[in-house]
Amino acid sequence: MHNNKYLQEEIIRISGVNPSKCMRCGKCSATCPAYDEMEYHPHQFVNMVECGDIEPLLNSKSLYKCLSCFACIDRCPRGVEPAKVVEAVRLTAIRKQGANHMTADDIPAIIEEDTPQQLLVSAFRKYTK
């Protein structure tokens, strides 16, 4: 495991989350509706950021599976707010030049007659910088 201090501090700063408040109960992962899609689960995001083990997260598809439904935020007994950690790692990944997870060229393939604008706008905001 590689401890990347710089990235760790960056993610703590962006997210405003203190991962050391976690008591390892796993309620975030118990409540997560995207759990089965994820390689790293919400409690692992918190734990790996606490350990400074950031690279695997940056390269993981798990970043794009979080629904931002905030269930982990509301149900965490320690007020850790795991979804904010996931968001901070995702932003760190896509803020790099050329690292957008979605581009305008992807749209025509996705769009259908009944696709609401909200879907595209939201996906763009989550996946693109």
């Binding site: 796993g26 309620k27 118990a30 997560c32 409690h43």
Partner: peptide, 17 residues
Amino acid sequence: MVGKVVPEGDKLKVQAS
């Protein structure tokens, strides 16, 4: 921890980690 309990029919669907 258990994250959510969903009553459905005569069962309680427990989602946990």
